[in-house]
Design a protein around this nucleic acid. Structure first.
Lengths: 205, 205
DNA sequence: GCAAATTAATGATTTATTCAAG
DNA sequence: CTTGAATAAATCATTAATTTGC
């Protein structure tokens, strides 16, 4: 089932290569017209829709950030653990040479020292997370193109549409759906705050 | 400036009333066709676009949840403080009648007890927040209608479009933009992880 | 009363999280 | 496990309420 009745798009190798190339070249949040162009171009290599392109960039950007974040976290942790080990080693060396704590009443023994630092490690981890979170707000790579054109995208009559000159897009498909009576004449008040809950579903993983 | 050159939509009283009525009647995440109908209907009462309707429901739902959340938190805190006060009163009463701590070495005096519990309150607050956050993941109210129809919305050629029968929407506006060379013939590798930062640019509109 | 200054609401975007196909 | 798809949360940005000093 390469293309047939698959429920979700899966990019061909060519498409993926091009998308990645575009990503590397700096595109992060393509504008509607960019998406249009990319889609048109990529449709040469297989079935593809604009929303696929849209989602691809969104996910790729997010997962890139995520990856970098994890890498930084990992480095930080390793760095801190190394520091602790060095401190520990230092104290251990000292206690090897000098039995006791030099007579100072508040001086830690190596074991206590280690414990003390592992909790401070947690604390520092918290700070690191916060910092990193703030960094996120600056990581976003904005495409000036998209900034300018964002306002031109609008979700009108038939869905999201590019509004170029004609502010009112031609309604090329105005069939009325019978699915729901959106504007009933009578006002049916249900339970004020609707609580239709999400089916839990076997949440494995 | 009721309608003139304002950069963002502000709903008329009529529009707001209708939107709230629809919300009360259970609509939370309207499908593309629902949005289309609502927009058409509301455009009778003033300028409005589909995306306004889309965002309105999104925001309204989110802020409803938020409100409920805060209410629950408030109740929980009050409940806990009441509990603590009761405990405190209990200990106070006891210490009124029985001076000392019954000879038990680890028994708190009323003041200590109060301090102890105020820190445990903080701790419990933390737990409450976590629980509440997890609860959020189940609070989502899903509109079965939208679930079915979501797949029909797609961001294609001219932006988001409803895909009904014609899988390839008629390209009614395929002008090529000169703004960016999306597919350069030469492969310019920048810095692997591109950090094209946001052009400040006088982003007025 | 009535603007300038603050603050609260809320429209619009972006980012994070989750679900689920393959 | 990876990743396309979708939703929820967080955030930004502008407008409306409200306050304040005159």
């Amino acid at each position: 089932m390469s293309q047939a009745g698959s429920s979700r798009w899966s990019p061909t190798t060519e498409q993926l290569m091009i998308l990645e190339e575009l990503y590397r070249s700096g595109i992060r949040t393509p504008s509607a017209s960019q998406i249009q162009q990319i889609t048109t171009h990529l449709s040469f290599y297989g079935r593809i829709e604009g929303k696929n392109v849209f989602y691809w960039f969104q996910n790729h950007k997010a997962r890139d950030r995520q990856k970098l974040r994890r890498k930084l976290n990992m480095q930080l942790q390793l760095q801190q653990q190394l520091q602790i080990q060095q401190h520990y080693q230092f104290n251990h060396d000292i206690s090897d040479h000098f039995v006791g704590n030099f007579g100072f009443p508040n001086c830690f023994t190596p074991k206590e020292f280690s414990l003390f630092n592992s909790s401070s490690l947690l604390f520092q981890g918290g700070i690191a997370n916060t910092l990193q979170r703030d960094m996120n707000f600056k990581w976003g790579v904005y495409n000036p193109q998209s900034l300018v054109e964002k306002k031109d995208i609008t979700f009108c009559n038939n869905g999201w549409t590019l509004m170029d000159a004609n502010k009112q897009p031609s309604s090329c498909c105005t069939r009325l759906l019978k699915t729901l009576d959106l504007f009933p004449l009578t006002t049916i008040r249900t339970k004020e705050d609707c609580t239709t809950t999400h089916q839990p579903s076997s949440c494995d993983m």
